[in-house]
Design a protein around this nucleic acid. Structure first.
Lengths: 133, 133
DNA sequence: TCATTTTTCGGGTATATACCCACGAACGCG
DNA sequence: CGCGTTCGTGGGTATATACCCGAAAAATGA
């Protein structure tokens, strides 16, 4: 029975596998897909608080905080207090923008590989299935 | 364009979300889905080496080693040297078998929820799509 | 204005995951 | 039977992720 296979584990494996494709492609830039994606989100929302960013990327606030700190240490992101003294305001630095620009084509390439492998409607069908989970 | 959305991130989000469903269901037993699944695999392959187990679950050997050590600390798995003195031989303990038995119905329940949400052919289509990645 | 509650972080702790390297065991070839 | 090679772990390091708790700031209500 195929029903014996854990749906969760299938997903986790695929997630790890696919992540590694993106990670390899982005490796020349020294960032992985989680970092690159977070950087993009910060760029789109900047200046943004950890809470808002966490909501957007569907990650725990503390996770986003720690991940952002790594980006800060790399010099790709600036973290400063906002008007609201509680808030940490995130913005992409110049170095971060360089990475964003350089990573675009690398990311595109993997996206296209995935699309090629899934076929014309594959992406849409996959996304539809994942959306209900 | 839906093509702007990172296929990898979609997968990672779904993976985290679905994992949390299983984690919640298994929480009364004090194990998460990664641990439960690993325990099941050890049970099926016992006695098994870290290398073989890693190959089976598609995880790095060192990752499996560390995860197994957590299970050992919980008393669910025994790790002993095998005939080949290099090998760590994993077997499920009595306490581990209790968890496996108790977890079965909890796991089934989440599996069914997922299947219900994906519809009759959903699982097969999803699995098919993920398989080519 | 002041006390209470809510919000926002940060740190502690723990697991999951991977890569690299060192060490010791096993094995195969002269 | 040695010796070099291969194999299997373990430990170090680093990121990703989550949950809980405490501190500090802001908002709210009397």
């Amino acid at each position: 029975m195929s029903k014996d296979i854990c749906h969760c584990i299938v997903l986790r494996k695929a997630s790890r596998r696919v992540s590694s494709y993106y990670d390899e492609a982005l490796a020349p830039l020294g960032v992985n897909i989680a970092q690159f994606s977070l950087l993009r989100n910060i760029d789109r929302m900047a200046p943004v608080s950890l809470t808002d960013l966490g909501a957007r990327v569907e990650l725990d606030r503390s996770t986003v905080g720690r991940n952002a700190k790594v980006l800060e240490r790399m010099g790709l992101v600036d973290i400063r207090p906002g008007k609201d003294q509680r808030e940490a305001t995130l913005t992409v630095s110049d170095a971060g923008r360089v990475i964003l620009k350089a990573g675009g084509p690398l990311w595109d390439s993997v996206q296209e590989d995935i699309e090629a492998r899934l076929g014309p409607d594959g992406i849409d069908r996959l996304r539809e299935l994942l959306a209900v989970l």
